[in-house]
Amino acid sequence: MADLQHIALTTKPTAQISYTFHPATTTTPSSTTPPPLLIFLNGLGLPQASWFATIAKLQESTTPLPALLTYDRYGQGATTDRDPADEGAEDPTHGHDCLAVVRDLRQLITQIANDKLNVKPEEIDSIPLILVANSIGCALARLYAQTYPRTVAGLVLLDSVLANSDFVSIFPDPDAEDFSATSLPEGITADAIRTARENIARIFHPSVGSKEGLSRKNLAALLPDSDGPVLTGPDGKGPFVTVVGHDFDTFAKESAKMSGGRGEELTKAYANPYWHRYNQGLVKITGEEGRGKGPVIAEGAGHFIQKDRPDLVAGEVLEVLKKVL
């Protein structure tokens, strides 16, 4: 495993970002110069270290690999420095949004490509990127591909954040005028739903900030649909997109633990179907017949699929790499 390194973005020279870089294990044909770069994008819950088991699985394969990059965002994991742009923020837990993270990622790629791949900054858009992401990292991957079209050749999206949802509205509102208790699934009560909505609002509502200062307040406006906008890859076609979702039973059990032993039935009845429909939409962002795959269900995995099933993640990444390389 590569050692942790640190870099200061030239746009934010007072702070250091922790990253790992693995050189490519193969040379690429001259037609695909500069070589591809595979980047892992964290969610809010787990740092770059969560990808190390997947990378180890990739390195066990005989398939030639492009250069690999992991990193921790400001205030996350091994990056102890906060985002300098958040200094003086009225609410430090909502210091910056996903677009700010995307701009930082762009700068990081520019500097890493220059230092490690001998690609000049003015040639940065010629590097085919493969983005492997979990949770809010999937939203970041989509926003990067939208903001910098024709740069992302492949996406592996692992249990994407429900970017257009407040999470609470997944469940019916038992206090709404048109609510009918007779419509509830067997064994689920209005009180149980009310409690679930309250618990979820405290933890997952976009108004809840994050320790790193990344705000989700405007995420629904940035990504209002799961199936669009359609993305454009380096060849003018849609990127190869693989969407992986959590195991329904495993996720329900995880949710129950988070809520003190309650909520497994609610997750199965409401959250799992909602998430699956969202993932079905995500497959369509490629806009190209035959370039989308999924949703693949990661058996035995909860929300953090790379932690629970690094073998499956590595397999899906290798499949995308074979299409891109």
Rank of each mutant, 00 (worst) to 15 (best):
F52T: 02
A53I: 01
A53G: 03
Q59F: 11
Q59A: 11
E60D: 15
S61M: 01
T63C: 13
P64E: 06
L65K: 07
L65T: 00
P66K: 04
A67H: 03
Y71P: 01
Q76I: 09
T79G: 09
T80L: 15
T80D: 11
D81H: 12
R82S: 13
P84S: 08
P84Y: 08
D86K: 08
G88N: 10
G88L: 10
G88W: 12
D91T: 09
T93C: 08
G95E: 05
H96N: 02
C98M: 13
C98P: 02
L99E: 12
A100S: 10
A100H: 11
R103L: 09
Q107T: 11
Q107S: 14
I109Q: 05
T110L: 13
T110V: 14
L117A: 02
N118I: 03
V119Q: 06
K120S: 13
K120A: 10
P121R: 11
E122C: 11
E122Y: 14
I124M: 09
I124D: 08
I124T: 05
I124Y: 07
I124H: 05
S126P: 09
I127N: 01
P128D: 00
L129Y: 03
I130V: 15
A133H: 07
S135H: 14
S135I: 04
G137T: 04
C138V: 10
A141P: 01
A141T: 02
L143I: 07
Y144R: 02
A145G: 09
Q146Y: 02
Q146R: 05
Y148I: 06
R150E: 11
R150M: 07
T151M: 03
T151H: 04
V152K: 02
L155E: 00
L155T: 00
L155M: 06
L158P: 04
L158S: 03
L158H: 12
L158N: 05
D159F: 12
D159N: 15
D159Q: 14
V161F: 10
V161I: 14
L162K: 06
A163E: 06
A163M: 12
N164L: 06
D166G: 07
I170V: 15
F171C: 06
P172N: 13
P172S: 15
P174D: 09
P174N: 11
A176C: 13
D178P: 09
D178A: 15
